[in-house]
Nucleic acid binder design. Structure first.
Lengths: 210, 210
DNA sequence: CAATTTATGAAACGATTGTTCTGTAAATAA
DNA sequence: TTATTTACAGAACAATCGTTTCATAAATTG
């Protein structure tokens, strides 16, 4: 019955020469390079250098540039977009949670001047223009955020203004969030964008005088 | 007093060999290539071929790839975004004009499956990540649309719901429009996006029961 | 006609692209 | 130790990149 600590036990060293890079740190570096340079603009040499990972290991691990890009997007969703999704709670009123959501969106898009905007909305969206696989990926990532928003809105359905369905309201709020990410790509300061986010929430959530 | 028709007179042929391409058609072709392939993804050879313009003439005319891209953006604004701006009127109620605005936005972003989304919001936005000149261009193009929206909103100021300023409301509506363009890049059909546009208008414009 | 001017088409440029190969280093297994 | 396995660093690859050059074509001017 007493199961040995299969998960926490230090794994026995694998067979050959140990890798000289940290897989997660390497992916984080790839995220930053793609985020600022774009998909076509990010050269493998630059990625290899910034990731601290030799090209051979890079191709061994990810297959090709597209595979590396998709892995970087996955890492970005886990480490960056997760904070945005978590902000939605539910942990308060719909208004409070949506305010936190837009605050997280703007922070993500403006906190590092070297990587303005959003890896998905600015970089993947561009690459999706002529690459069917990446277009599918874009659609799936977009749908995931909208689904998350719709769930939260359905929980607080009675708090929303107007007669729109939760599904449409979710796409609308997701569109505002993406528009703010785009605006951040142009260098707009976070304060202005926060104000716009609050305005969106005020219009969507039922106000006192209704 | 009777001014000769300086504008309509057939211009005397210029000195040397006549050019073998139509400048406007050539730029239209460049718009399409950048729109689908992205800035880095659009190869000069491909641009030269599709524009029907030899590389030498291309460099003579635009200086370099960045100059050609900026010219293509100007052409795109004149020939495509102008219909979006014109839809704003004023030619009816604020609600009617905003509905026409979003209808034009969605049509622009979905009418040709080879060029989904928006050249500015999807392509220029990506390129703006690591190029200061293009980031400035993106900011200027974004600001121009917001200014146009703000003017229209100020004219119909009494028709808007909520307490937000015309400036903030303009950025909010511009953000929704750009979010819809992004969604179109992923292949979403126009009908869904039209619905979201109408929802945005319904929330921003004062409704009967207020 | 010859002289001049501009544009064309294609070759050529060096640099960089994404990707693969090669010899060696560093670990474990027998 | 020897054999085996994996990862390393960097050379090497053909292809393509953005850009320039150049001889020639096609027009006007004198």
């Amino acid at each position: 019955m007493n199961q040995p600590d299969t998960n926490t036990a230090p794994l026995p060293r694998p067979r050959g020469r140990p890798r000289g890079f940290e897989p997660q740190q390497a992916l984080d570096a790839a995220v930053r390079v793609f985020w600022s340079e774009g998909y076509d603009g990010a050269a493998i040499s630059r990625l290899s250098r910034d990731m601290g990972m030799p090209k051979a290991s890079l191709y061994q691990e990810f297959g090709d540039k597209e595979g590396l890009f998709l892995a970087a997007i996955g890492r970005y969703v886990e480490t960056r977009l997760s904070t945005v999704a978590q902000a939605l709670g539910p942990s308060g009123t719909l208004k409070a949670d949506l305010d936190r959501f837009f605050e997280a969106v703007v922070t993500l898009a403006t906190s590092d001047p070297a990587t303005p905007g959003c890896l998905i909305s600015c970089v993947l969206a561009d690459a999706a223009g002529s690459n069917a696989r990446l277009r599918k990926e874009l659609d799936a990532r977009f749908a995931a955020l909208e689904s998350r928003l719709r769930s939260r809105i359905e929980v607080g359905r009675m708090e929303i203004a107007g007669a729109e369905s939760p599904a449409v309201t979710a796409i609308l709020l997701a569109s505002v969030a993406r528009g703010l990410m785009l605006r951040a790509r142009a260098g707009t300061d976070g304060g202005t964008l926060q104000e716009v986010g609050r305005a969106a929430v005020n219009l969507v959530v039922r106000s006192g005088k209704d």
